[in-house]
């Protein structure tokens, strides 16, 4: 299982990444990385959606809440959205969400928005490489543990959570 240690030494820590990929470009791009046998770290767990604009910012918060160290949202390149303009909604929504993450004390670097086309298998693999490295540097988020430390059940707000150094 993935290690969730609190130690300062992050060398053995494996970040958990949840990836929301759009069916038409990014999921196909991830498949293409597979058919090209491009190797990347095993940390990513993918959820397929039809369009990146289906990704509710609440899903991202949910993922952090449940123990994800990073979240990736990937869609078609601007101008290339299968649904004409879905990726623009995604872009705007997640600019806003970054601000919120910062406010509640989660480093916004943990959320990454990328455009990956169906032919960019190498780019997809590179993004995962980079993300894993970045998250290893940031260390574990452990939001669930921290939420548990502040046991106030329903009244838990992120303000009560020990702030992560941003």
């Amino acid at each position: 299982m993935l290690v969730m240690s609190k130690s300062k030494n992050n060398a053995f820590y494996e970040p958990r990444i949840v990836g929301f990929l759009c069916n038409w470009c990014s999921y196909a791009g991830a498949d293409f990385a597979g058919t090209s046998r491009i190797q990347y770290p095993t940390n990513l767990r993918v959820i397929r959606v039809m369009c990146s604009s289906r990704v509710n910012p609440l899903f991202v918060l949910k993922a952090f809440q449940e123990g994800a160290d990073g979240v990736l949202i990937a869609g078609c390149h601007p101008h290339d959205c299968h649904y004409i303009e879905g990726n623009y909604y995604t872009r705007r929504r997640f600019i806003l969400l970054r601000g919120l993450l910062e406010y509640v004390g989660i480093n916004p670097k943990r959320l990454r928005i990328e455009w990956v086309s169906a032919s960019e298998g190498d780019r997809f693999a590179r993004i995962i490489d980079e993300m894993v490295n970045d998250l290893k540097e940031l260390g574990p988020l452990e939001l669930r543990n921290r939420l548990n430390e502040n046991q106030t059940s329903h009244n838990v707000t992120y303000k009560h959570v020990k702030q992560e150094r941003i």
Binding site: A33, Q39, T42
Partner: peptide, 18 residues
């Protein structure tokens, strides 16, 4: 396959966990 065994063939254990 495309998103697990083919991209993690150097790391069978972690691929199995994934």
């Amino acid at each position: 396959r495309e998103q697990c065994s083919w991209v993690h063939y150097n790391d069978p254990e972690k691929a199995t966990e994934k």
